[in-house]
Simulated assay, not measured.
Amino acid sequence: MTDDDPLELARRIAQSYRGEGQGAGRPGPGPKKRSRPIKPSRAKNEDPSTISDLLGQVVRNQGWTEKLDDQRIFTEWATIVGPEVAQHAQIDGFDDTVVHVRATSTAWATQLKLLAPRIVAKLNEALGDGTVTRIDVRGPQAPSWKNGTRSIRGARGPRDTYG
């Protein structure tokens, strides 16, 4: 067989990985070679990594860092605005630097509208400047008169009830 034979080349590579000698006629493993010390660059690759490091690397590679930073507003809302405000105001959404907040009552909606500049400043301090520019405060939802056991198709709600 010649040196150009790819099968022979593959056999020699496999033998070298198994630690066998260069001679094709020697069966079994050959004399053991002295192990070389592991280089520091190679040791890094062989060391185990934590799952948080791997997830962080995936997030950076996919370009999700900014999106995840924006989502911190949902997870850290109670710590940023305080427990009392968080109890009466829940975040409905976050679009293009605008936070949509739903208040539990109209009184809390009014208070949140008055506190909006302070809340925006706190959010920007915690999440980074320019993350939030405005807070859109909405009061509680009014009850729907369109559904229910006594609703009538085509009716105009409670105005039809009282004649």
Score class of each variant (00 low, 15 high):
1 M>D: 14
1 M>P: 15
2 T>D: 12
3 D>C: 05
9 L>M: 07
11 R>Q: 15
12 R>N: 13
14 A>F: 07
14 A>L: 15
15 Q>T: 05
18 R>M: 02
19 G>S: 08
19 G>P: 12
20 E>Q: 14
20 E>N: 10
22 Q>K: 12
24 A>H: 14
26 R>Q: 09
26 R>T: 12
27 P>R: 04
27 P>A: 03
28 G>Y: 02
29 P>W: 00
30 G>M: 04
32 K>I: 10
32 K>Q: 15
33 K>Y: 01
33 K>V: 03
34 R>N: 08
34 R>D: 10
36 R>C: 01
37 P>M: 03
40 P>L: 02
41 S>W: 04
42 R>L: 00
42 R>H: 00
42 R>V: 00
42 R>G: 00
44 K>H: 05
45 N>T: 04
45 N>F: 00
46 E>W: 00
48 P>F: 05
49 S>C: 04
49 S>M: 05
49 S>W: 04
51 I>C: 00
51 I>F: 00
53 D>T: 11
55 L>P: 08
57 Q>G: 07
57 Q>N: 07
59 V>D: 05
59 V>A: 06
60 R>N: 12
63 G>E: 12
67 K>S: 13
70 D>T: 12
70 D>R: 15
71 Q>A: 15
71 Q>C: 12
72 R>Y: 03
73 I>D: 11
77 W>M: 04
80 I>M: 00
81 V>C: 05
81 V>A: 04
83 P>Q: 09
83 P>C: 02
85 V>S: 09
85 V>F: 07
88 H>P: 14
89 A>D: 13
90 Q>L: 02
91 I>E: 07
94 F>V: 09
95 D>W: 05
95 D>E: 10
95 D>P: 03
98 V>P: 03
100 H>S: 11
100 H>P: 04
102 R>P: 13
103 A>G: 05
103 A>Q: 05
103 A>L: 03
104 T>D: 12
107 A>L: 02
107 A>T: 07
107 A>E: 01
108 W>F: 08
108 W>S: 07
108 W>L: 09
109 A>I: 01
109 A>S: 05
110 T>V: 03
113 K>G: 06
115 L>P: 05
115 L>N: 09
115 L>D: 11
116 A>F: 01
119 I>Q: 06
119 I>D: 06
121 A>E: 15
122 K>A: 13
123 L>G: 13
123 L>M: 14
124 N>R: 14
124 N>V: 15
127 L>Q: 15
128 G>N: 14
129 D>M: 13
130 G>L: 09
133 T>S: 10
134 R>I: 01
136 D>W: 01
139 G>W: 04
139 G>D: 08
142 A>M: 11
144 S>H: 08
146 K>L: 10
146 K>N: 11
146 K>M: 07
147 N>D: 13
147 N>V: 12
148 G>R: 09
149 T>S: 10
149 T>Q: 13
149 T>D: 11
150 R>N: 13
152 I>L: 05
153 R>K: 09
154 G>C: 02
155 A>N: 06
156 R>N: 13
159 R>G: 14
160 D>H: 06
160 D>V: 03
160 D>C: 04
162 Y>E: 12
162 Y>A: 10
162 Y>Q: 10
163 G>D: 13
163 G>P: 11
163 G>Q: 14
